[in-house]
């Protein structure tokens, strides 16, 4: 891009901005429900100013040069905020592509007489704008990934309730795959609750865990060890037949850990560990006679 084109474009800044704005607002893809026109106008003007300044710099041809840094920043900001607001990738890249269209028109007008120069300048401008368009897409994807990450972490927090099933007994139903991140959340929540309630027994129910591999087993063992260090005992329940099979086939050693097939039998075991007796009320209608725990 030569100095002349840069100057010419600068001179037509007002016109470029107006056409670009009308292109953007005309575009059916513009989501005026997500962003006001005034906001868009301000954002676009700021962007255009930086872009024209970069065009006029000595390294106008190189989109990675220092002059383009503020432009990259603005673009990233726009794409990330659009990704968060729920714009589609097409809507997001339309921003830069609609500007490219306007700039082509302007160059065409300027070099009507000389097609060789026009061709060269258009190619040069295209190169810069395409590279900027790539930046938009890249940051848009990054923005979406951040959204996904945040949702994943929210989900893992929501899906790990610690339930107090009895005085001194906690239960933790684990649903879904246990990875390192999730284990940390689960472990912390469980240990905090053990301290808060002074519970001596925690039942980890894994009925809802689809598969147990050596990594998941290791995470479970770590949780049990940490609870023991604090003075609480853990029972792992909800071990299905196929899970027992995989555990043995993988050679995972769970001999130091109390395991039960169902939550009910784990609860029964906790009762005997805490010397609690639970029995049916007497048949003759007396509810909760002296020795019995009434349900």
């Amino acid at each position: 891009m030569n100095k002349e084109s840069a100057a010419a474009l600068k001179g037509k800044k007002k016109q470029i901005l107006d056409t670009w704005m009308s292109n953007q607002t005309k575009d059916a893809a513009l989501r005026d429900d997500l962003m006001s026109v005034a906001e868009l106008q301000q954002q676009s003007e700021e962007f255009l100013n930086s872009l024209l300044k970069a065009f006029a710099s000595s390294q106008a041809e190189n989109p990675d040069s220092a002059g383009y840094e503020p432009i990259h920043d603005i673009l990233s900001e726009i794409s990330i905020s659009r990704a968060r607001q729920g714009f589609s990738p097409r809507e997001t890249s339309a921003y830069i592509l609609s500007l490219k269209e306007v700039l082509s028109q302007m160059l065409e007008e300027r070099y009507k007489e000389d097609t060789t120069v026009l061709y060269r300048e258009i190619i040069s401008m295209n190169k810069i704008m395409d590279s900027l368009s790539l930046v938009t897409t890249e940051t848009y994807i990054k923005g979406r990934e951040e959204v996904i990450l945040r949702q994943t972490s929210e989900m893992s927090e929501i899906s790990t309730p610690v339930i107090r099933v009895w005085e001194g007994i906690l239960a933790l139903p684990i649903i879904g795959t246990l990875d390192s991140a999730r284990t940390q959340v689960v472990m912390e929540a469980l240990l905090e609750e053990i301290v808060a309630t002074g519970s001596r027994i925690a039942i980890l129910d894994i009925s809802g865990v689809p598969t147990v591999d050596s990594l998941v087993a290791q995470h479970l063992i770590k949780t049990v060890s940490a609870a023991r260090l604090m003075g609480a005992e853990c029972i792992i329940s909800g071990i299905r037949a196929e899970i027992a099979q995989t555990i043995v086939h993988l050679g995972i050693d769970l001999t130091n850990i109390y395991t039960k097939a169902t939550l009910a039998s784990a609860l029964k075991m906790s009762f005997s560990m805490l010397n609690i007796q639970v029995s049916k009320a007497a048949q003759n209608g007396q509810i909760g006679s002296k020795q019995n725990f009434g349900f």
Binding site: E188, V195, S225, L229, M230, G231, A232
Partner: peptide
């Protein structure tokens, strides 16, 4: 040994220390 904080327990496990032979309890009473 009583009253170990959760963060300390998690760290010890990660460190590879299980304090075998030491009894533990949640608080002084227990």
């Amino acid at each position: 040994v009583v009253g170990m904080q959760p963060a300390v327990a998690i760290t010890l496990v990660e460190l590879g220390l299980t304090l075998a032979g030491v009894h533990t309890a949640l608080d002084v009473e227990q």
